[in-house]
């Protein structure tokens, strides 16, 4: 048999296709979590009311905020799950090395994040339909949430980037936990404990984190911030994974 030279890019492409077919479970969990998000959203994500003699105004906002929040959480969990031994060993059933395995997983996660973001944002229309047809109300004011298409597109990109950012966090956390099972307990204790300690010391990390990413009004700067943070987290995960043996 003649020996075959393969390109990294060729194997990465094949691995992405392979993961797309084999990791169908992640899509099921996406559907479930978004339906759950929809259910919670039926209560409305914000409301205000005022009344005078003779009339009564009550405004309830139906937005996909909760669904998006749930999808972010799903992104984190899915990435975490893909670092577990069972999933990593699936890669090694066929041709791969660690580089192609990690690259294809990250690319696959990006595709997942795009799908998650698009469905999450589209679910706002489902929600409005539900609210219109099913929920009781005197008058429905079907206004568009955002003014124009470009703003909607911007929101879409931002959602994708945020879910992708959280997936990188999940991936890093998962890889760290893979080093030693004890870290399942130690890691969250250390992270949350540090957060509490720093908060008491007058340095609320989580607040800074949210300010840094979510209160950025410049779209380009936001993209730059999230993408670089994502890159850093994935790079750290790759460093950690280099300490793992492939298959035991």
């Amino acid at each position: 048999m003649s020996l075959i030279e393969v390109q990294t890019s060729e194997i990465v492409k094949k691995q992405i296709g392979y993961k797309w077919k084999s990791y169908t479970g992640v899509f099921t969990s996406l559907v479930v979590i978004q339906l759950l998000g929809l259910l919670f959203s039926l209560n409305g994500s914000g409301s205000m009311g005022s009344g005078r003699t003779g009339y009564d105004v009550n405004i309830t906002y139906y937005t996909a905020d909760i669904v998006v929040g749930f999808t972010i959480f799903w992104g984190f969990l899915t990435a975490f799950l893909l670092t577990t031994k069972a999933y990593r060993e699936d890669d090694f059933a066929f041709v791969t090395n660690r580089k192609t395995s990690t690259l294809s997983t990250i690319a696959f996660l990006f595709v997942l994040c795009v799908i998650g973001a698009v469905t999450a944002l589209l679910s706002s229309f489902t929600l409005k339909l539900f609210a219109y047809f099913i929920l009781p109300g005197e008058e429905m004011l079907l206004t568009q949430g955002v003014g124009n298409g470009s703003a909607w597109l911007l929101g879409m990109v931002a959602t994708i980037l945020i879910i992708f950012l959280f997936s990188s966090l999940g991936y890093l956390a998962g890889m760290i936990v893979q080093l030693n099972k004890m870290l399942v307990i130690i890691l969250p204790v250390v992270v949350i404990g540090l957060m509490i300690l720093l908060y008491r010391g007058g340095f609320p990390v989580q607040v800074y984190f949210f300010e840094f990413f979510f209160e950025e009004s410049n779209a380009w700067l936001f993209t730059l911030k999230t993408l670089s943070a994502t890159t850093i987290f994935y790079a750290l995960a790759v460093l950690v994974s280099n300490r793992l043996e492939v298959k035991q």
Binding site: E5, V6, V95, N97, K99, V246
Partner: peptide
Amino acid sequence: FNNLFVSAN
């Protein structure tokens, strides 16, 4: 170890 060429063959 961790070699794509060896893995492919």
